[in-house]
Write a protein that binds this DNA or RNA. Structure first.
Lengths: 221, 221
DNA sequence: GTCTATAGAGGGATAGAC
DNA sequence: GTCTATCCCTCTATAGAC
């Protein structure tokens, strides 16, 4: 076996383990993601987990980072093309539908819960979540550049609320699927409603609009 | 030892185990809540977990139900006294501050994550979550009885979003405390903003106000 | 009801052959 | 790099003494 061939196989093994780690977490939960189960899902020998990644936690952390980078990169162009709040809402919808269907939101929820008292995983999942937050925050800042909202709400906080909200609803989905569907639908309604109110504010005529905006600004004091 | 005395001790043991189960989940996460750790935290013998509750899962499920019933009962009067959206917001704030400080939100998050592939726990945590949702939904319905929002948003869905949102932010808190604080603050801002917009809508004068409401209603078609 | 002891399964991690 | 075999630990659950 040539040196190149050996390297290629090792790369394949490592990739298979990364992939299987997340798949296993999705199927069996964080607690069920043992080295044995992951290796079996990857079609690999259990000892290779430790040879390539040292510990199970390190494998899971690496899988979390690698996967999130890829998934976020997949949507980065769409985030950047969003010019209005409605556009961002549409991208958000698409991201959630796809990532939910792929099981990635459920995996993220399991990682967040499993991170309790697990520093290696906690650091990885914090970074991963931040990749999503940065995209949402950047886009929010752009589409709301002319909005009075900008002065009233911490967009970084809002971006984190949105991400955390999806995670929470995913966990609800695990114990009450109908409830989760209703929760998601109500947020859709709320988002559209807010967007409409903001638009209407600009259509009310300058006097009324300025009056409302002044009262909103009074909130921050 | 009299019969009464024996019963009293057994009740104490059972209560100690229930309490320790949730404390252990809070301190060590769902995966760390083994019969041994729980029993030690309760100052009891490990075998008593199985004598009194059969399995660890059944103990955890019982603890989840019992604790949630008590906690929700603690706030029921305050929910019922809330007459405006601002009142509800104030109660919600108080509930979150207290329950977060007691660690109960973190425990709920761990239970939700641990419920994956665990039917006994899943059923218990679904019921527990529902106790909170029912209170919020009832109160929302009452304080929004005269609001145009009632026709535009599924209040049951909204109540579930709020509960799920707190859970998500609690998980974020585990890996990024500053981010969680910002997320929570931004939701506060958003809630106050929405409440203000709804109030302003009524203060705009009847013509403008009716115009906006008509446009909002058009959303539902 | 409570205790000790232990069976039996599964998990992390390593040694050493190939 | 990969495999088998194995050590040692923790876990659930039960048996049986008290």
């Amino acid at each position: 076996m040539s040196r190149t061939e050996g390297e290629w196989m090792a790369k394949n093994t490592r990739a298979a383990l990364l992939d299987a780690a997340l798949r296993t977490i999705g199927e069996r939960g964080f607690a069920g993601a043992s080295a044995r189960h992951i290796a079996t899902a990857a079609g690999q020998n259990q000892a290779l987990v430790f040879y390539h990644y040292g510990t199970v936690n390190d494998l899971i952390a690496a899988a979390c980072r690698e996967s999130t980078e890829q998934r976020v990169a997949l949507y980065r162009a769409e985030f950047e093309q969003a010019g209005t709040l409605a556009d961002l809402l549409a991208v958000g919808r698409q991201v959630h539908v796809t990532e939910h269907a792929e099981g990635n939101v459920a995996v993220l929820a399991q990682l967040l819960a499993g991170a309790r008292g697990n520093e290696v995983v906690a650091a990885a999942v914090a970074d991963a979540l931040n990749l999503w937050v940065v995209e949402v925050e950047k886009t929010l800042g752009r589409v709301l550049a002319d909005s009075p909202l900008l002065a009233l709400i911490d967009l970084g906080g809002l971006a984190r609320s949105i991400s955390a909200g999806f995670v929470g609803i995913e966990l609800l989905d695990g114990v009450d699927p109908d409830g989760a569907t209703r929760a998601l639908a109500s947020l859709e309604q709320l988002a559209v409603l807010t967007e409409t109110l903001l638009t209407e504010l600009d259509n009310l005529g300058p006097v009324t609009s300025r009056l409302v905006k002044r009262r909103l600004n009074a909130l921050t004091k």
